[in-house]
Every structure is written in C-alpha cells, then in structure tokens.
C-alpha cells in the first residue's frame, strides 16, 4: 500500500466517520457519495457523521492462514460488527480469549496498529474492536 492511499482514509480509520443521507437518514460506513436508497435525491445532501464505535457481532471467523503482514498474529478473530448507528463493518476482535468471541456479543472500537508498509515504512493505524468492558458505564 502506498502512503497517500492510507492517508486519505484516516478520518474513517481513526474516528469512524461515516455518512448520513440528508434525504432518508440512512447512515453508511465507510461514507458514500450517493445514498443507495435515494441515489439522485441524495446528491449534495450526504453529511459526515461520527459513529459511536459500539455494536454487536453478527458473525465471525478465526483466521489461521493469514494475509501478508498478519502472520504473526494468528490465530485472530475477524468479525462482522453491526454498529448501533446502523452500518455493519469488518474488523478484528482483540484482547479476549477466542472462545469469548460469539455472535451477539457487545463490542466497542479501539485504536490499534493495523499494518505497516515494512519495518522501515509507514505504520497504518485504525480501528479494531474489543468485547465491551461490562463494569464501565
């Protein structure tokens, strides 16, 4: 990956900035230029919206054959997470035992290193999720 390709996604990757359709209110993540429901009616009405980072696991899988750059982390959990704000996204679930990853589990976004270009290259940060800490209000 090149530096600008990562850099231009920083608002989404760091802060879960999605889009909200000014016409029907649908929230999308990552942000869309055009609302899939309203299409033409939504042009010029799409607004940025910061998502809460809280949601629920829809499904998951434990990766044991990893892509390049992720090998040392195996086994790790990837999940589809339905955010309370509406959209569903794909992210790693960290800081728990793999058996604790379950459909329906409550999760919250954390900020982590995702990839690095190389040992001497740029570090790409972004969101991962952890099981919601129950004692925290």
């Amino acid at each position: 990956m090149t530096v600008p390709r990562f850099w231009r996604e920083i608002p989404q990757r760091y802060n879960l900035i999605g889009s909200k359709c000014g016409s029907c209110g649908t929230v999308d993540f990552p942000p869309r230029t055009i609302c899939p429901h309203c299409r033409r009616k939504s042009i010029g009405k799409m607004e940025d919206i910061k998502l809460s980072g809280k949601g629920e696991i829809v499904s998951y899988s434990i990766v044991r054959e990893a892509p390049e750059g992720f090998e040392i982390q195996v086994p790790y959990a990837m999940a589809l997470i339905k955010l309370d704000d509406g959209p569903t996204l794909t992210a790693q679930i960290v800081d728990c035992e793999l058996e604790e990853v379950k459909i329906g589990a409550r999760v919250e976004a954390v900020f982590r290193r995702i990839q690095e270009e190389s040992k001497s290259g740029v570090i790409y940060y972004g969101y991962k999720f952890q099981l919601a800490m129950p004692q925290v209000k």
Binding site: I72, Q73, F111, R113
Partner: peptide, 9 residues
C-alpha cells in the same frame, strides 16, 4: 504491549 500496540495506540 500487544502485537498491535505502541506508544501511539
């Protein structure tokens, strides 16, 4: 620190 943690995170 985890594999994905550093001073920034």
């Amino acid at each position: 620190p985890g594999f994905d943690e550093d001073t920034a995170t």
